[in-house]
Amino acid sequence: MQRVNMIMAESPGLITICLLGYLLSAECTVFLDHENANKILNRPKRYNSGKLEEFVQGNLERECMEEKCSFEEAREVFENTERTTEFWKQYVDGDQCESNPCLNGGSCKDDINSYECWCPFGFEGKNCELDVTCNIKNGRCEQFCKNSADNKVVCSCTEGYRLAENQKSCEPAVPFPCGRVSVSQTSKLTRAETVFPDVDYVNSTEAETILDNITQSTQSFNDFTRVVGGEDAKPGQFPWQVVLNGKVDAFCGGSIVNEKWIVTAAHCVETGVKITVVAGEHNIEETEHTEQKRNVIRIIPHHNYNAAINKYNHDIALLELDEPLVLNSYVTPICIADKEYTNIFLKFGSGYVSGWGRVFHKGRSALVLQYLRVPLVDRATCLRSTKFTIYNNMFCAGFHEGGRDSCQGDSGGPHVTEVEGTSFLTGIISWGEECAMKGKYGIYTKVSRYVNWIKEKTKLT
């Protein structure tokens, strides 16, 4: 034993070699072989497995989906700052455009905790909710729209109204504003409101030439003092309507412009014939205590009207009353817009006519005020429907199939267009061939041609 100890002390290297040989010859039971080890760690190889990531292109799944990435790591994937920024906006807080917040056709661009709407022409605001041009839906104005110097929408209202708090709607500024039905039992019968379409306001006024200088022999019209197929109006439903009495009662109609003036057809009036105007009328054979009678003290036909040349060209006249009318729910003026808007309103496509005229061709006159909704007829169809001249200051309205029309005794009465609950004068009943005849239409004086003249002559002093 002493000898062994001496050998170990003198030859430590020998001992180490012996131990190493023993270990190498022993069977290893701690580690699995290569094949079995792979069965336990069965993990798919990654895209760049075996390579240094710093030297390969980034992978979106590896960089940002398996674990949260930084902007720089995302930049490695896209290799483009702009594309990385677009991805980053949604990656950080989701897609803010998912709810489609942009209105009126706006395009949404996502941002971090926010979004941006790219608005089409005519709109602005956070969600493109603000109209900035009158060309689109009248700028959301209830009545009139004008573009300011910086191309912003400025709404306005006709006389007797003021802008509401929203700067879009119009509200009454006087007790009985024009064009409004205020009798409670008839307010439910107000005709369907007309909503502004998209309009090209630059070209809204037709490029028409008034044929002022045409000389033409007097034409022989049949029954051209021209509501057939209409309905009984309720008291106060058309408070701007008046009836004219002269040699015979209810020979023509008219509309209240203001307390002192009536507008009617020029062919209705004769110099030297006494005319009485009755406002607030409903049943011409009954006294309903809503009527107001006034005498006409002055007749002003349009300066281009000449019955000797043509009885229905420039067929418009103004009547001055001896005493002002007292405005109330049964006696209310009709609204008159400017030339541009009167023309736009007419193009809405349908209007209402009213009167006490004959209820059928050569038949009896109506006792109760009649009204009828009539569609506008395109000019080409209008011209083809008659052998008589249709001037540019006239328009056609009615039904091709016949059966409904204005008729004798309705002449001078109103053709009105309702705009968001307020009625505007767009025409004056003038003439036609018979009444409600198939293929024939009622012919009306186009008020847009005469609004400046009306307003100039009827100013209240």
Rank of each mutant, 00 (worst) to 15 (best):
V227Q: 07
S114A: 11
H282Y: 13
N138M: 04
L325M: 04
Q408L: 14
R384H: 09
N313Y: 11
I284V: 11
Y312S: 04
Y91F: 13
E401K: 14
R180I: 04
T381E: 09
E86I: 15
R62Q: 04
S25N: 10
S354G: 14
N104T: 01
G413R: 04
N147W: 14
S70K: 14
G432D: 12
S107T: 11
K311F: 05
I284W: 10
L20Q: 02
W453Y: 02
D33E: 08
G254H: 00
V447H: 00
K347M: 11
V228H: 08
E76N: 15
R294Q: 02
D200C: 04
A317N: 00
S430H: 04
S255P: 00
L318S: 00
V257P: 00
I454M: 06
T133M: 05
D110K: 06
T133Q: 09
Y341R: 06
K438N: 07
H415Y: 10
V248C: 04
S70C: 04
V77C: 05
E165R: 10
E433Q: 14
S25M: 14
E98W: 08
C407V: 06
A207W: 11
N343R: 08
V92K: 15
G160E: 03
V77M: 09
V277M: 03
A192F: 08
F196L: 12
H302V: 02
I7W: 13
F78I: 15
E54W: 06
N36E: 11
S114Y: 07
R449G: 13
S220F: 09
Y91G: 15
N306Y: 05
A149T: 09
R298G: 05
A26K: 02
E86K: 15
G402F: 15
C178M: 02
L20C: 05
A279T: 03
E76R: 15
S70F: 07
T445R: 02
C28K: 02
D111N: 09
A266T: 00
T389D: 09
V451A: 12
C128T: 01
L244P: 00
L425A: 01
T271D: 05
V154K: 10
G94W: 05
T16W: 13
L367A: 13
N42Q: 11
V248P: 08
S217Y: 12
E281C: 10
I300V: 12
K440M: 05
K168Y: 11
H314V: 03
V326Q: 14
G442I: 10
L41D: 15
V195C: 05
T276V: 07
V257L: 06
G409L: 07
E72F: 15
V228Y: 08
R379G: 05
V242N: 01
K293H: 09
Y91C: 04
A436C: 07
S354Q: 14
A436S: 14
K260P: 01
P101S: 02
R46H: 05
T85G: 13
T16V: 10
I284L: 14
C335G: 01
S70H: 15
V326F: 07
H303R: 11
H303D: 09
I214M: 08
I210Q: 12
H303E: 08
I334M: 00
T389H: 14
L24K: 03
T133C: 03
I429Y: 14
E82Y: 05
E35H: 06
R46I: 11
A436W: 08
